[in-house]
Amino acid sequence: MNSRRVWAILRFVLTTLFLYFVWVLFTSDLGLFSLLFGLAASVMTAALTYHIFLPEHEANLRFFTPHFWALIRFLFLMVFSLYQSSFQVVKAVISGNTNPRIVHFRTRLRSDLARTVLANAITFTPGTMTLDLNDDHLTVHWLLCSTTHTKAAGEAIKTKLEHALGRTWL
């Protein structure tokens, strides 16, 4: 009971801090009224929604607090792979030979946030697009398919991203 209470208070404080950070970022106004009003609004919104924003079963701080440098490296990796994959799609547009398939595989990342970011990042890898994410089961449409074997397809698509994400979150 006690540890649950502590975890609930911690989640409430984290939600408030996040909302307040976003408020200051978007208003970009450092007047006293704006700061106080934003704090009050953040506390009220966090009291109503903290159990949705951070579910209780995600009981590890590393689940949603990223390593800063790993996050920066991951952003640069995303931008690089965005250009690379667009180039592959341009080559497919010119030559016209594609091999579209739908493949299914599982991920071994554990936090919801990391899984969501993985699903978004798979859209940026060459010729793939995430259709569905259900717990740890991903459905991916692959334009330039080379194999339909589940394990081989999963290894080919996600290995690099999963390593980078495993260093950022858990």
């Binding site: 667009s86 799609v89 341009v90 547009v93 594609t98 010729g127 334009l143």
Partner: peptide, 21 residues
């Protein structure tokens, strides 16, 4: 690519990814 491909998936790949870039 948006006008050359025939099925919606390939159009989504070409249009969405190249448009994003």
């Amino acid at each position: 690519g948006l006008f050359r491909f025939r099925d919606p998936y390939s159009r989504l790949h070409a249009g969405s990814l190249c448009g994003t870039t």
